[in-house]
């Protein structure tokens, strides 16, 4: 082996199963050279709940990405505006499979375009919360001492304010548009991510491998960035998946409250709910359909997140 030294960083997953060696080996494992993430993924593949979650999420993402091709009508078009009467909104027909709404827009198209808006808001706001939370949590977890105390008290302060209230205030200050909704939802998540990461880092810092790394003479920065942080990210990433679900719901809630701004015909699930209120007695499907979309999407992300959490559970890990 020494005659042909492999590359400095051996390619992790290309390993053919080698002989289980060492004098104190246990029965050879077939799954050689698998990182924890790979193992988690393998475990998730066998879980029906994870598969259901993944299918829902995949469908949602596909619909959002392919909206221009899937949707029968453009985003803000009102093709059926001549069919609307004050007392009657036409239901499903061959031309409009899920019927029309108050403005004469095709509901199916609206739902499809709405998926796109929800995906953008959900993903961007979660990323925002994740980035902010990791930065704040890293600060607290890496330095400890008074930095930790100061940062965490500030985080506690943020947590003490009800998240919807905070989001509403942010949206109110930043103006009524989608960007402010994204910022509002993202900022609200920062303290949650920060807390999780800090707690996880504190636990990891006590592990022997961190002591061993310090004994090797690595600087504190290296120990933190290459050992403590990567090992602490598991719960944070699980949380991010779960936050995607709540972000979709909260985006709908903020739009429902009218904080999203823009024209009433703009396709967004929350806004569709707002509009449906007035017509609840004559066309309940206008409220049911977007509600169902929100619930199913949130359910998909939640199932995926929960099974990811289970797959990454250290107790499962050890049992293999």
């Amino acid at each position: 082996m020494t005659a042909t030294p492999p590359p400095a960083e051996p390619v992790v997953d290309a390993a053919p199963p080698p002989e289980p060696g060492g004098s104190d080996t246990r029965p050879g494992s077939k799954r050689d050279g698998q990182s924890l993430w790979r193992q988690a993924f393998r475990r998730m593949r066998t879980s029906p709940i994870a598969i259901l979650g993944a299918v829902i999420v995949l469908a949602f993402v596909l619909v959002a990405l392919l909206a221009p091709w899937l949707a029968p009508y453009p985003a803000q078009a009102t093709p059926g505006r001549d069919l609307i009467r004050p007392t009657m909104i036409p239901g499903p027909s061959a031309e409009f499979p899920l019927g029309l709404d108050r403005f004469g827009s095709d509901v199916l198209s609206q739902l499809i375009w709405g998926a796109r808006a929800s995906l953008v808001i959900g993903v961007v706001s979660t990323l925002l919360g994740l980035a902010g939370g990791v930065a704040v949590g890293l600060l607290a977890g890496a330095f400890g001492g008074w930095v930790d105390t100061a940062v965490m008290r500030f985080v506690d302060l943020m947590l003490a304010i009800p998240s919807l209230l905070l989001a509403v205030s942010i949206a109110a200050i930043a103006g009524q548009n989608n960007t402010s909704i994204i910022i509002a939802i993202g900022v609200v998540q920062i303290p949650i991510f920060a807390r999780l990461l800090r707690g996880s880092m504190l636990a990891q810092r006590k592990e022997d491998y961190v002591l061993a790394a310090r004994s090797l003479g690595l600087t504190r920065g290296t120990v933190t960035m290459s050992h403590v942080l990567p090992n602490s990210l598991g719960p944070v990433i699980v949380q991010a998946t779960l936050v995607l679900a709540t972000a979709v719901i909260e985006a709908a809630a903020l739009s429902f409250l009218g904080l999203g701004g823009g024209r009433p015909t703009e396709a967004e699930w929350g806004r569709m709910l707002t509009g449906a209120q007035a017509e609840l007695s004559i066309a309940p499907r206008l409220a049911l359909l977007p509600g169902l979309c929100i619930s199913i999407t949130a359910l998909g992300f939640t199932l995926l997140g929960e099974s990811l959490r289970e797959a990454l559970d250290p107790r499962m890990r050890r049992r293999r």
């Binding site: 002989e19 060696g21 060492g22 104190d24 246990r26 050689d32 050279g33 698998q34 050890r318």
Partner: peptide
């Protein structure tokens, strides 16, 4: 330490306590 070279690619979870 009497470990075969092939062990280099493994992760700790794939080793026994002695390894």
């Amino acid at each position: 330490v009497a470990l075969p070279a092939a062990m280099a690619r493994r992760y700790p979870a794939e080793l026994s306590g002695g390894q």
